[in-house]
Simulated assay, not measured.
Amino acid sequence: MDLGPIEITRKTGEEKFKSKSDLNKISLLEFWQWSTSDLLANTTRGYLAEFIVANDLGVNKTLRTDWKSYDLTSKKGLKIEIKTSAYIQTWEQSKISKIIYSINPSKNYDPIKNRFDGKPFRDSDYYIFCLLHHTDQKTINPLDLDQWAFYVLETRILEEKLPKQKTITLSSLLKLNPVKCKYGQINKIIEP
């Protein structure tokens, strides 16, 4: 039995669920609307940040992969890890959230062997820390690219300065002198 990787194709949203009764006319778009309309939710915001950076890097035609040890590959083959945080959350807050990013080294997943191999490490060339920096709950809009800031840092700096650290606050990140930029400038920093 050949159980190699399944080739994933880009969906349009018009695909329909199937049923022998043919009474079910649910579309894939309806599922997306149901499952990912909360763009402030941590998981969805993470996917959104990856998509925004992929667009800036010009690699948005490839599909996102869950099992890689990094999030994106640039046109020149650089491996990019995307992290996201926000001051405003969907849930009720008594104050804005503290900005903290995960930088935990992880084991590489080998899809051929179907297992995680080796010692945990940071398998990327760059980290891009995405911050939805808007602080007004009434006007926050993750689709407004002007409400985002991006901090680009070479992974080697994390490896040199914080090799075993699992998280980093925004204030600690800023001490590492990342390059701060807006949407439309990321590609110029990664691949000048």
Results as ranks from 00 to 15, higher is better:
133 H>I: 09
158 L>Y: 11
135 T>Q: 11
30 E>A: 14
50 E>V: 01
119 K>M: 01
72 L>F: 10
107 K>E: 11
89 Q>T: 14
39 L>Q: 13
133 H>E: 12
104 N>M: 15
53 V>H: 01
49 A>F: 10
95 K>R: 07
29 L>K: 13
94 S>V: 15
130 C>P: 08
62 T>P: 02
49 A>P: 07
153 L>D: 05
164 K>Q: 07
156 R>E: 15
54 A>E: 04
7 E>A: 10
92 E>V: 14
21 S>I: 04
11 K>F: 14
22 D>A: 08
163 P>I: 06
122 R>D: 02
16 K>Q: 09
63 L>E: 02
47 Y>Q: 02
24 N>G: 13
61 K>V: 10
135 T>N: 14
103 I>W: 04
118 G>E: 07
15 E>F: 03
35 S>L: 12
157 I>P: 00
74 S>L: 03
61 K>L: 03
93 Q>K: 06
21 S>W: 04
59 V>N: 06
86 A>W: 03
107 K>P: 01
156 R>K: 14
146 D>Y: 06
30 E>Q: 14
14 E>V: 15
143 L>G: 01
65 T>W: 08
82 I>A: 01
113 K>V: 09
33 Q>G: 04
98 K>I: 05
15 E>P: 01
73 T>V: 15
172 S>H: 13
13 G>L: 14
102 S>R: 15
